[in-house]
């Protein structure tokens, strides 16, 4: 029984990883011309996947580490005004297109991997911060009032009432941020950060659809994989309470 549920959990991520490997192997074996073959070699494909993963993982985890505590902080009643101001700033900032964000930071920080990670970090910070704040704010006031009236300390109210109730909304923010991040990371190739975007860009510039397709499939699989894994983490933590 336990083995079965465990298998069910790993089946989808494992399947996605296998699909990714299959895609990579297929395109390396069938590059469709010498031009594409130059990009589609095993070491190069692995390197691009690694770069992409690294960009996404580093920027996303730093964004979670910064946005969740910050979201909690600005949701405190003492910082109510600051919270509203930041919420409005986020709402405007989120409409700024991802390409513009990358381009803007390139003009400030120059080309390269670090610039890309910074821009991706900032861009995924927004949805997580907003959802953390909104999630905590969505806890009904009567629930907080009852908890306060019963003598729970503010810290206990946060850990036992507010965070558990905000949790699904926070997780939704994290999932959105990471999925968007995988896509945005393809644009990071324009500012010299490498990653799967390289495959797509070279494919477009030398008119080799196989390259574009390979990059597209690999990054789409990566996005779905992250979404699935995070969804399972969400359910796992929810079960454990």
């Amino acid at each position: 029984m336990q083995l079965k549920s465990w298998l069910a959990r790993v089946a989808v991520p494992l399947g996605l990883i296998l699909a990714g490997v299959a895609v990579a192997v297929y395109f390396v074996e069938n590059p469709g011309g010498a031009m594409a073959a130059r990009v589609l070699s095993y070491p190069k494909v692995i390197r691009l996947i690694n770069e992409h993963l690294l960009m996404v993982v580093v920027s996303s985890s730093l964004a979670i580490a910064a946005a969740v505590p910050l979201g909690i902080l600005i949701s405190r009643p003492a910082l109510r005004v600051l919270g509203i101001i930041i919420e409005n700033i986020i709402n405007v900032a989120q409409t700024v297109p991802s390409l513009a964000v990358l381009a803007l930071f390139m003009t400030i920080l120059g080309l390269g991997f670090k610039t890309a990670v910074f821009a991706l970090w900032l861009y995924s910070l927004l949805p997580i911060l907003r959802n953390t704040y909104a999630g905590i704010k969505s806890v009904p006031p009567d629930v907080i009032e009852a908890a306060r009236g019963m003598g729970m300390t503010p810290l206990r109210i946060l850990t036992r009432i507010e965070l558990p109730l905000a949790y699904p909304i926070v997780m939704a923010g994290i999932r959105t941020a990471v999925v968007v991040n995988v896509g945005t990371a393809t644009l990071a190739s324009f500012i010299g950060a490498g990653g799967l975007g390289m495959m797509i860009i070279s494919g477009i510039s030398v008119s080799r659809p196989t390259l574009v397709l390979c990059g597209a499939l690999l990054s789409a699989i990566m996005a779905i994989l992250f979404d699935n894994v995070l969804g399972q983490v969400e359910n796992y933590l929810l079960d454990r309470g």
Binding site: V179, V182, G183, T184, T186, L187, L196, G197, I200, I201, G203, I204, S207, P209, V212, L213, G215, A216, S219, A220, A223, I224, D227
Partner: peptide, 17 residues
């Protein structure tokens, strides 16, 4: 939803052929 996970750059690239 699946369409949304395809990076926009890739989607545009795939439409070129």
């Amino acid at each position: 939803q699946i369409l949304m996970t395809v990076p926009s750059l890739a989607m545009l690239g795939l439409l070129i052929p």
